[in-house]
Amino acid sequence: MSAPQSLSYRQLFWQVMHRDLKVAVHNKGDILNPLIFLVIVITLFPLGVGPETNLLTRIAPGIIWVAALLSALLSLERLFKNDYSDGSLEQMLLSPQPLFIMVLAKISAHWLLTGLPIILIAPLLALMLHMEPLAYPALMITLALGTPVLSLIGAIGVALTVGLKKGGVLLSLLILPLYIPVLIFATAAIEAAALNMPYSGHIAIISALLVLALTLSPFAVSAALRVSTN
């Protein structure tokens, strides 16, 4: 027997994230479905409220953000569900390595697979909805700062409900209220930008939410996982 090899936190983080990304590449549907859902919801809106440009311009930030929020919710369940049902979550809980690093790695992988595509496709969606050209930078910034918050907060809800048979509805009850502040400040920032007004205050608040979620969520998720795998 040789001496145990200790991983640095950074190595551990990369290893877990790398593994999750590898697994996800095999389940392409998991990545694509939420994105397709997002695009469909957004195309439904002009059909539903009528293609009047002024109206669409006005509600575009709200539509994009609500759609992003719902598609995040849709993709969240696979964050821990598979690992839970095949026992690899158990192995992570039994590792001498700190759980919150692994959790953070998994959340990061989730964001790379679901949040990042939303950001990349957002300008196209904004174009479809005739969003004010001035507001594009604000849209991108709020999505870049806001979608990680969605993954981080969502992870808490998933971790709490992963052991439950009917976790789906409960998940939305737990998470959606916590998403409200992100939604409010993000759309307010985009609206302010569309009117050529300063929106750094809103961005600062979203950043504060992001930092807060980054600080608290890994620990809350770790604690929640220990409870729900019981």
């Binding site: 590898k22 697994v23 590449v25 389940n27 049902s85 095949d86 026992g87 690899s88 158990e90 192995q91």
Partner: peptide, 12 residues
């Protein structure tokens, strides 16, 4: 610890 569930990922 090796439990009921093997903790083996089919995708790897």
């Amino acid at each position: 610890f090796i439990g009921h569930l093997a903790g083996v990922k089919g995708e790897l």
